[in-house]
Design a protein around this nucleic acid. Sequence first.
DNA 1: GTCTATATCCGGATAGAC
DNA 2: GTCTATCCGGATATAGAC
Lengths: 214, 214
Amino acid sequence: MLPAMLKSITSADATRRRGRDTREEILSCAEALWQGRGYNGFSYHHIAIQLGIRNAAIHYHFPSKENLGVALIQRYRARFAEWFVEVRKIELAWQRLHRYFDLYLDYLNAECRVCPSGILGAEFQAIPEEMRAEAKLLMGEIYDWLIETLNLGRQQGSLKFIGNAEDKAVEIGASLQGGLQIARVAGAERLHQLLAQMSLELFGENAAAVAQAA
Amino acid sequence: MLPAMLKSITSADATRRRGRDTREEILSCAEALWQGRGYNGFSYHHIAIQLGIRNAAIHYHFPSKENLGVALIQRYRARFAEWFVEVRKIELAWQRLHRYFDLYLDYLNAECRVCPSGILGAEFQAIPEEMRAEAKLLMGEIYDWLIETLNLGRQQGSLKFIGNAEDKAVEIGASLQGGLQIARVAGAERLHQLLAQMSLELFGENAAAVAQAA
DNA sequence: GTCTATATCCGGATAGAC
DNA sequence: GTCTATCCGGATATAGAC
């Protein structure tokens, strides 16, 4: 599922683009820029250069930048929904959560991106209203999934934690989000430290298996 | 120490500004904008309006925006250094850490700002080189203080955690940073949930005292 | 659906008067 | 130390040809 969660545009060949899905390419390119530099840190020009098209071509697909921003979050939410379906096929909650950890390693490895939730939180007061609404929906969906996973894990005995699942869900989501941001400044090692600590606390006897895999 | 850590400009009266320290006012105003909207989310014009001065006056004090950005982080680091000195006078490590938690509540209450570390991490690829260097220093200082505090707490028995202090320090820093960002999108309650969970895990028998204070 | 060309605005920055 | 005036580049966006 990872390739689906992290589809970036790989050196778009500017030469032949015979009527192909430019819209998707724009979104993928914009997504990378967005997670790398923030919504206020990239422009249509950046995208145009990378895809070898003109400014106006992007405006054809996304009349305003707000349209593009909203589309970015909506596509991401849709992909996340598919990811949830996929991961729910895994029986053990600790393994589901481990899959979630993997996403953050992928972000780190993919040009040191931050997670969409993180960039949305950081720039919240500086993004258009419609994007804020989408941001709330995204965070709600992740929150719900974390709660579900934690409750399952407690029931199975595959996840260890004290307190209620709701509060623990916030802690886990916040840690990963913050850890990824710290890692891009202070070095990749920080994220590895975070994941090691979280595994130690949450996975109990399974933590050793995780450690050797990494 | 909180007033020192969070000095914002309160409705600068544009009328009489008889030779007063404009430089500091600019920094305080810019700091609020920075933590609210990000480095790429505010302009000299925003500051000029709020302080009732002209664009050029800001350029007199800070020739380039990069100068201003660097000064913001340096001033913040200096204030943090003072804060560290102050907090080290507290004997119990769990109370020191609790003071650190309080900072995040203050940020949330102050127009829903995010912490400097968080905005720096999120925008890292879209800020000038000199600011990145300052960002690394800031994060290193916080990281070191957290490790010191955790080691003290373990020695005293006033903080509970498993694993090594270095990894736990990353986890704590990341949680708070991420939690604040989540709270501004999903509501203040999220930060309260996070702090409750962290108190429960770290403070042990002292957690109850914290809970009733909140 | 993509192009060229252009309009408009905004943000960072400088010159020179006071 | 702050002002007015202005320059320049960049970013969003539109018009109309192909």
